[in-house]
Computed example of a mutant assay.
Amino acid sequence: MTESSPGPAAPYTDAARARLLMAYEACELADLARAAVPIGERELNPDGTARAPGTVLADAARVLTAAQRFLDAAAVFERVGGADWQVIGDILNVPAHTARVRFALSEAAFREDLLPPEGTHSGSVGGVTSLRAHIVREPLETALDLDDWVLRHQDGDSDLGTAPVSGGLIQRDTS
């Protein structure tokens, strides 16, 4: 996709949609992890212990859950791109069967999200699944939001351009 011609109904490839979902999960993970860095003025007791026991652990659990969603999205992206279970297993240092058992449901959910909402899509209950389906079905909107996020968090990366996410999405050849 070029920066000057992002059509609202651009026919993005399944791999581009999977990569976008992975980018979204990375963004969520980064935001959760960054929130754990500052130490609030009233967070600690005078002895350095937490004033509200369990809150730090709950935050860490949310980061871990987000990291697992990011890993799932990365495996799905690799699968959509043609990687077999052996490749995924080798990278994760597990047997191919273990990789398939671990990620097959995520891949199936992604492929279901590709179906039109009025089709046989059974849908899943819960905000995360509904959001995932929206990201997959409306990639440009998500990509533009992620463009803004990346540009706000550049940290010295000045060569990202004005469309660091949407500019890299690949559209199907419609000719």
Rank of each mutant, 00 (worst) to 15 (best):
G54S: 01
Q154S: 14
D148S: 11
P116K: 09
L20T: 02
T162V: 09
S158G: 11
G48N: 04
E118Q: 15
G127D: 07
A133K: 12
T174L: 15
V76P: 05
F103L: 07
G123D: 07
P11F: 06
D157S: 09
L20N: 10
V87Y: 03
G89M: 02
G161R: 09
W85P: 01
G168Q: 13
V128A: 14
R17P: 09
N93E: 12
I39C: 04
D14Q: 13
P53F: 01
S122L: 13
G81Q: 07
D173M: 11
P38G: 00
L92D: 09
A143V: 03
A33M: 05
T162G: 10
A50D: 11
A109W: 04
R137G: 03
D84G: 07
A9E: 12
I91S: 11
Q154W: 05
M22Q: 15
F110Q: 08
D72F: 05
L71N: 08
E138T: 05
T13L: 13
A36K: 05
V56P: 03
A52S: 07
E107N: 06
D155E: 15
R102C: 06
A10L: 13
D90P: 04
L146Q: 02
T98C: 06
T65M: 09
L131C: 08
P8K: 03
R42F: 01
A35I: 02
V87I: 07
E3G: 05
H121M: 06
R100T: 01
A50Y: 01
W149K: 00
E118M: 08
S106I: 00
L64F: 10
S106N: 12
R51P: 03
A58C: 02
P139A: 00
L71V: 11
E78C: 11
L64P: 03
V128W: 15
L64H: 14
H97P: 00
A96E: 05
T120K: 09
G123K: 14
D113T: 08
